[in-house]
């Protein structure tokens, strides 16, 4: 399997390593900043390192089997459409697209191009969340009735500070909490309605803080908090309350903790530091590659990516109107 990496920032570089760990070959790197593409290509011995304007050269290369898209969210649709039209299988980083309308177009493009389209909702592969899932399914805590999901830390920098343009990124609701929104759907089915408060401040300090209540169709109530308002760090928590018990996970209680003195550039993107036998990012690559190779249905299908976006979109609409929004 020959992979082209589109978007060679923090996430793209990490994905390149995961794909390589699965035995795939990184054959091309593309980025709006050719320097970033060159750097990543050198790491993996990829022959081609190009700027985004030369993307067509990569997509027309029969030596490329699949592409990884890890660019700013609003660019996803066009890249998916082009890659699909060129017959390349696609691994698209979450959020799938900036709007649910775009997600639908992306799904249609993949169908037309007869390519496989995977959306990177990696939380479904995290060992700790899989452990939560196993406990819930064991029936040990009875029927879950209320769930709290918490995620975030400092504001991510990203390329050209694109995260700080809330119209582009959708802020913490769209970019970070979407992990939890997808996981809630994965575990408890579809949402009925959502209420959301989103801070999205640029002055005097750049920060975002999102607080949501989601009523699932099952009746379960979920409280979701996402923060890009912390001066440093990253933390994720999950609390599942049932009729016969309670489950609680807190990343701060981890078997591994480290504090690095400031590095020159600072973190562009925070990827949680785990102590896993296999990285969850590698597990999603294995799942994606097995789908491409053996047609084995993966844990995440494109409709999941669409539904997570639709939920985040409804949340931001609620934040704007001050009223709950039905799905």
């Amino acid at each position: 399997m020959n992979v082209a990496i589109i978007g060679c920032g923090g996430m793209g570089s990490y994905h390149a390593q995961m794909a390589a760990n699965c035995g795939a070959r990184i054959v091309a790197c593309v980025d709006a900043f050719p320097e970033a593409a060159k750097k990543l290509a050198a790491t993996h011995g990829a022959k081609k390192a190009l700027g985004m304007k030369d993307l067509a050269k990569i997509l027309s290369d029969p030596g490329v089997d699949l592409v990884l898209i890890a660019t700013p969210t609003p660019t996803h649709l066009e890249l998916v459409e082009r890659a699909a039209a060129a017959g390349k299988h696609i691994f698209c980083e979450k959020p799938f697209c900036r709007t649910s309308a775009d997600c639908k177009k992306a799904i249609a493009a993949a169908k037309r191009g007869k390519v496989k389209l995977f959306v990177g909702h990696v939380l479904r592969y995290f060992h700790e969340y899989e452990a939560l899932k196993a406990q819930i399914e064991s029936g040990k805590i009875g029927t879950p009735g209320w769930v709290k999901m918490y995620r975030g830390g400092m504001f991510p920098v990203g390329s050209k500070k694109w995260f700080s343009n809330f119209d582009q990124s959708g802020g913490v609701t769209f970019d970070a909490s979407i992990h939890d929104l997808d996981w809630l759907r994965y575990m408890f089915g579809d949402a009925e309605r959502v209420y959301c408060q989103a801070l999205q401040r640029t002055e005097p300090v750049l920060m975002d803080y999102a607080q949501m209540t989601i009523r699932m169709k099952s009746g379960l109530i979920a409280t979701v908090v996402g923060t890009w308002a912390h001066p440093s760090g990253f933390r994720a928590k999950a609390e599942i309350c049932g009729s016969a018990g309670l489950l609680y996970y807190d990343s701060a209680e981890s078997p591994l903790s480290a504090q690095q003195r400031e590095s020159g550039a600072g973190p562009g993107m925070i990827i949680p530091l785990g102590a896993d036998s296999v990285s969850p990012y590698q597990l999603e690559w294995e799942d994606f590659l097995a789908w491409v190779r053996d047609d084995r249905k993966p844990r995440v299908v494109p409709e999941d990516g669409l539904k997570a976006v639709a939920l985040a979109e409804a949340a931001l609409k609620s934040a704007k109107t001050g009223q709950p929004v039905k799905l």
């Binding site: 009875g142 029927t143 009735g145 209320w146 209420y195 408060q197 607080q211 209540t213 009523r215 009746g219 379960l220 109530i221 409280t223 309350c241 049932g242 009729s243 001050g322 009223q323 709950p324």
Partner: peptide
């Protein structure tokens, strides 16, 4: 100035006659 709330009676197998959880904004 404002309140929004979702109530549930679902943490005690419906044995209570009142809400057992409220998520407020």
């Amino acid at each position: 100035t404002k309140v929004y709330c979702e109530l549930g009676n679902q943490l005690h197998k419906g044995s209570l006659k009142t809400d057992d959880v409220g998520s407020l904004h």
